[in-house]
Design a protein around this nucleic acid. Structure first.
Lengths: 151, 151
DNA sequence: TTTGCTGCAAATAGTTTGCAGAGAC
DNA sequence: GTCTCTGCAAACTATTTGCAGCAAA
């Protein structure tokens, strides 16, 4: 429930690449490495910035394509936002609650002990066959609460 | 908890308009009327289509501006989606769970009895001051389950 | 050698904005 | 009469796509 081993996650993603006959390019492996740890739930722009150091010619389009590829393999959870700037979690690629700071955009995984699975109840109440879900809590993190300066 | 009286919701929105010195144009009132009942959680495009009958010159920009105005008055809940096509609920303009059909895009409000408020627990677990939340369940509605034809 | 990948630039689509005329009050 | 609102079209921005050259296997 806490944090998975980034190395194991990385190995799993690479295995999926091989199983599906995708070539192991340096750029692709680098994207996988960042998603495997997914520190801070990075966005495409953040991944791009991290990679530009090692790959000066790196293109944003390549980041998009590889993140989408890994998503299509079921190895990254995409947190899309209507305002744009999607965020990714390749460390825990299954639905789970998130807490999002509306000021600094930090995203963390809360440790909820008493969270029963609502899926059964929702299915019964709605008649739907539930496939997935999304649970986001928005607020201010401790840091942003302390520094209650202006915007 | 079920459905609010559209007339009362409409009156509330109009009152907010007056209180904040916004002019009561026919287009604005028409948007408010549709949001007050919010049947099926309409999107901007849907509102636009409904209004074009009465206002042949109606512009999409006007719908956007008035929906945003009503949102800024706290009288409509915006359900934004990363794929675009935001949906609105002016009948229950406060956070509540939604069940969304991934095929026909229907959105309903499930009647969840045993839903304790997780906000307290999330706040304790994360240190955040929680301001709002979003809870979406995605799946297939009964109609789409029955007609299991192709896409 | 073959096939898929990358980088660049152009295209896309939902939403927002500038501006001039129209309308609420 | 004043000031906001509307309608139109252009702008905006995150993301996607076409294409030619390049690299993995």
């Amino acid at each position: 429930m806490t944090h998975n081993d980034p190395q194991k996650r990385y190995d799993t993603i690479i295995r999926k690449f091989r199983e599906n006959n995708h070539k192991l390019t340096p750029q692709r492996l680098a994207v996988a490495r960042i998603l495997a740890k997914s520190e801070g739930h990075p966005g495409v722009e953040s991944i791009y910035e991290q990679l530009k150091e090692d790959f000066p010619t790196m293109s944003l389009a390549t980041v998009y394509r590889n993140v989408m590829l890994i998503k299509s393999l079921g190895e990254v959870l995409e947190l899309g936002f209507p305002e744009g700037g999607n965020r990714y979690d390749g460390n825990k690629p299954y639905p789970h609650p998130h807490v999002i700071c509306v000021r600094c955009k930090k995203i963390i995984d809360p440790n909820l002990t008493g969270l029963q699975d609502l899926t059964q109840e929702v299915a019964a109440a709605s008649g739907f066959k539930i496939l997935t879900h999304r649970m986001d809590f928005f607020g201010l993190c401790e840091e942003c609460l302390s520094s209650q300066d202006a915007d």
